[in-house]
Simulated scan of single mutants.
Amino acid sequence: MFKISELIQYMNENGMLVKEPETYDDAEINRFASLQHPSCDALCWSQKEMPVNDIPESAVLLCQPGQEHNPERKTVMLHVNDPRRIFGALAHHFVPETRHTGISAKAVIDPTAEIGENVYIGPYVIIEEGCKIGDGTRIEANAVIYRNVRIGKNCHIWSGAVIGADGHGYFLNEEKLWTRVRHMGGVVIGDNVEIKANSCVDRGVLDDTTIGDNTKIDNLVQVAHNVVIGKNCFVAAGAIIAGSCIIEDNCWLAPGSVIRNGVHVARHSQIGMNAVVYRSIKQTDTVYAGNPATAVKKYEG
């Protein structure tokens, strides 16, 4: 794939290294690997400092600035401020993702839908009338995009996602029977949004359900009708965002978290695993945990 010298040159050009490595053999790096499966041709990383005896026998280890070296190992230590972030950036650069384009013959697309350039639409995708799909967006097999949904540029909709179905809105009629509310809103998704497998984003009743640019939604997430999610939010698996919630920019919702209908979550908040938010959150830059969710510490993310 690439030499250690190429790696170090790229990292220096992008200001990643805290200090220059000591002398090293210019070995070939052929794979990225976890600490559990290192090899002499692998690049590994550790977010935490480790005992020197635990340092893997790998070609390179991305490590914290204070990490000590084991002189018995040939591993080249590359000290950086945030190994996880640097690892992600290096993987993007040296192992670029293969992007397919084109529309499967097995997809079902209404003739009124507007499809942008350089898109990928997989087999058995359904796109209904009035939809708009932005340039560079990928929609994987078996996703369903209901009527009048707008998806921005360079988004990624994974298999089994359902976007634009009616929300769970009902009223009791004169006979005290539940009757479905007519949903006349849509769904508007910004640019660079990811919605993972089997997640649901419901259309609004009157106003659109909206998801801001660069927000990432994990598998099996429920986004109910009329919800507004801001930019650059991170929503982990199993989260439930009930109807008419507002989640401001740069929030993190951990796995299994629940946001009660109508609640407003202030920007740059983190909602902890399985936390339940019953009341609106006004304080920014804070971690909330528990049931009911309460503030526990400053959010540094």
Rank of each mutant, 00 (worst) to 15 (best):
L7V: 09
T112I: 08
S58P: 03
S5A: 14
K297G: 02
D166N: 15
K153N: 15
I133R: 13
Y288N: 00
P123I: 12
V162I: 15
F87G: 00
G185C: 12
V60G: 00
V119S: 10
V162G: 10
Q270L: 08
G301L: 05
P83Q: 04
A236W: 03
E114Q: 14
C131M: 05
M184G: 12
V277H: 05
F234G: 00
V223C: 10
H156W: 15
I127R: 10
R138K: 15
Q47K: 15
V221C: 08
A143C: 11
A254L: 07
A239D: 06
G243S: 09
H100Q: 14
Y146D: 08
V188S: 12
P292G: 09
A161Q: 14
D82C: 08
Q67G: 04
Q36L: 15
K216N: 09
I121W: 04
E117R: 09
V187G: 13
D135W: 08
I127M: 06
S5I: 12
Q67C: 04
I103L: 11
V119W: 11
H79W: 12
V221E: 06
N214R: 09
G230R: 01
E20D: 10
Q222F: 10
C200L: 08
H79F: 12
V188C: 10
V149Q: 05
A266P: 03
A105Q: 14
V144I: 13
L17R: 07
V205Y: 08
Y278G: 01
A27C: 07
R260P: 07
A33L: 09
H93C: 02
E174N: 12
I121K: 06
I229T: 04
L90D: 03
R99S: 14
E300Y: 00
Q47W: 03
E174C: 08
R85L: 09
M11C: 13
I133S: 13
S199G: 12
L17M: 14
G204Y: 02
S199P: 09
E49V: 13
K196H: 15
L172R: 11
F87T: 00
E248Q: 13
D208Y: 07
N53E: 11
N14P: 04
D110R: 14
V235E: 03
M11H: 10
F2C: 08
Q270A: 06
R182M: 13
E128H: 10
M16Q: 13
M184S: 15
C63P: 02
V263R: 01
C200I: 15
I189V: 14
T101A: 10
Q222T: 04
H225N: 13
D202W: 14
S39T: 05
V296T: 05
C245M: 02
F87A: 10
G88M: 07
I217G: 05
G66I: 10
M11K: 04
P292I: 11
E300G: 00
I8Y: 02
Q67I: 01
Y288I: 01
I145Q: 12
K297S: 11
T179D: 11
